[in-house]
Amino acid sequence: MNRKVLLSNLILVMFTAFICLAACGINDGNRVGDCTLTVSFDSVPDEFYTLDEKLIDSFYICVVIENIVTEKNYNIILDKDNGFGYTAYLYPGSYHLKNIYAYNAGVIGVELKSDTESFELKRDNGQRLNITIANKDEFIRSSDLISHSGEMAGLDKFSRLIMTGDTIYALEDIKDVLNLTVPSDKTVIKAYSKEEYTDDAKGITITLLNDTPAEKEYKDCRVIAVEITKRNCVLPGCVAVGVPGEYVCNAVTGVYGQPHSFEGMALYGYSYGSTDCVYCDANTGDRITVSIDDVGRFVSKIKYEMERYE
């Protein structure tokens, strides 16, 4: 091989190797400059760490900050693997907190906030961004709720009772303690119709039925279904959103035992959608659907439907 060919080949290979190395090096979008920004999940109450391990494993916070001048976004992930803390290396400049997302925040029952909305990054002065639980008291109360819900333990699953706060309510009466969001076009329910109403703070959605031939004020309609998506109420057997799936639905050890049927995705545990365990009561026609998270394997949603007869 003559030298010219050898040299050109060498340059070509070196160039390729350089590109490959450079591509391997660009693996962290948050390591672009020399100013440090430390983001951490702070003032976490001890009750957080008493949650089911799978629930904590699947919980992560995504903090989105934006450079005001360049309008470039940086996503910072806080999770169990990094101890809910992360140091990003960014360019100097003015930034503002664009958003905070949290996966499974609803299930856990936490709302997040930050101590600052905007900040300046300088070379000689590192910044801190603290993320805290906005509804700390409520979260602690909801944690206590499950541990102090002993009176719900021995009840039959179809007893149509629900515990929220420190009080046990009949499911039919739950609408009286909820702060429902009622759109203006839904204050009245048409004849022989049903409508859904949600209390966002409590994470409870109820379905109201008007089974009369005339229009009816929503307050006067009957509750036929209750859906729970947050960890702040307890159903009979101390079942709540966020508890491990096997605690509720295991055929041998579960408080509700073997489900009568399953719905949703049969490929369990593979991010293709949750698996729903269905329990039916032949006498009353009531039906409980317990949704099990596809990855974390904890209860992500509970729906109690009355007199469904299916």
Partner: peptide
């Protein structure tokens, strides 16, 4: 085996019992 293991752990059922529960 992963699916069968997850089903056994969570629902305490064999894979065939679990699949029989679906429509």
């Amino acid at each position: 085996t992963e699916i069968a293991g997850a089903v056994r752990e969570t629902f305490g059922l064999s894979l065939s019992e679990y699949l029989n529960g679906f429509g």
